[in-house]
């Protein structure tokens, strides 16, 4: 696809730098314009349920305990005990050592377990350690692996290294026999990439290397997910499908806290990538407090009165 005989850093560089530059003012204006859509009650109700079904309910703290992960899993399966019609979330996202506990707690609910790996969140470890980290999570049963790219290598222009690492991690995500492979989400950590051009290049680089999903951020760096950055990534996956026929998912993570934000992202998915992406298979929210706000809005629509934090479960 790159039109070169051998995959050298130079070839990758030429190709990635050949991508059209991003019009910063234009993309920010476009994202802001998409955020002004008025969404009426019936659409809102659909959008809230859709957004809940797209959440990767996340806990990535040093202080995580098995108990905390179990209660998060309980909330993932039954987000609102006062309304059993509330959809389940898409996945629970935890550190690698908690995968077994989450897997057991979620049982046959169909909710995926996503594990962050490859020396998350910094990614500063040798490839051997990153692969071991990934293998460990895959072995424990993780359905999805959220890896971080080596931003240092990317920023210093060593695209080949980044490519190879993604490809290597992708390989260890495979399971032998009929067992389904773990899906690979590649975290670009856009807050550290400095420019929109870099975000576009990193998105394409990750897709070239075999990413199933591209994800904005770890949530540990500010700024995390923003509308313009997600818009760029949605453009990238749309163009990728046109070029290759394959679909790649997008996951904004970090900083999305309110239902209003979530609805704006859904508008953007529909407008930029297309309605095919409006499914948990192709679009996810990496969030923890977002679910609470979505549930409050859902209760507001159901009862007609504003709800309060006392009426949703804590995780």
């Amino acid at each position: 696809m790159l039109g070169v005989a051998s995959l050298t850093n130079k070839a990758l560089r030429t190709w990635l730098h050949g991508l059209p530059g991003v019009d910063q003012v234009g993309i920010e204006a476009r994202a802001a314009a998409l955020a002004t859509r008025s969404i009426k009650t019936t659409s809102k109700s659909w959008a809230i349920d859709t957004a809940i079904g797209m959440i990767d309910l996340t806990t990535l703290e040093g202080a995580d305990t098995p108990g905390k992960v179990r209660s998060l899993c309980a909330k993932a399966q039954l987000p609102d005990p006062s309304d059993l019609g509330t959809p389940q979330v898409a996945a629970v996202c935890v550190y690698g050592d908690m995968v077994g506990i989450a897997k057991e707690a979620l049982g046959s609910s169909g909710i995926h377990v996503a594990a962050v790996a490859t020396a998350f969140p910094s990614g500063r470890a040798s490839l051997a350690v990153k692969l071991a980290d990934t293998k460990d999570a895959v072995k424990a049963g993780a359905d999805e692996i959220d890896m971080v790219i080596d931003r240092g290598a990317f920023l210093s222009g060593d695209y080949r290294l980044v490519f190879d690492q993604i490809a290597a991690v992708k390989e260890v995500c495979a399971r032998p026999g009929d067992a389904p492979d773990a899906h690979l989400k590649v975290i670009l950590e856009t807050g550290e990439l400095a420019t929109y051009d870099n975000v576009r290049r990193a998105s394409w680089l990750a897709m070239l290397a075999g990413a199933d999903f591209i994800k904005t951020s770890t949530g540990k760096v500010q700024p995390a997910a923003t509308m313009p950055v997600t818009l760029l990534m949605l453009e990238a996956v749309r163009d990728w499908r046109e070029l290759t026929g394959e679909m790649v998912g997008v996951k904004p993570a970090g900083g999305i806290r309110t239902s209003k934000d979530a609805l704006r992202y859904l508008v953007m998915v529909s407008e930029i990538a297309g309605d095919d992406w409006l499914s948990p298979d192709w679009f996810r929210f990496g969030a923890s407090s977002l679910l609470t706000d979505l549930l409050l809005q859902r209760q507001k629509l159901r009862t007609g009165a504003y709800s309060g934090a006392d009426y949703v479960t804590i995780d």
Binding site: Q299, G304, A305, Y306, S307, G308, D310
Partner: peptide, 9 residues
């Protein structure tokens, strides 16, 4: 009515 019915009040 909105204030009276608000669950967080």
């Amino acid at each position: 009515p909105w204030l009276a019915s608000h669950a967080d009040v």
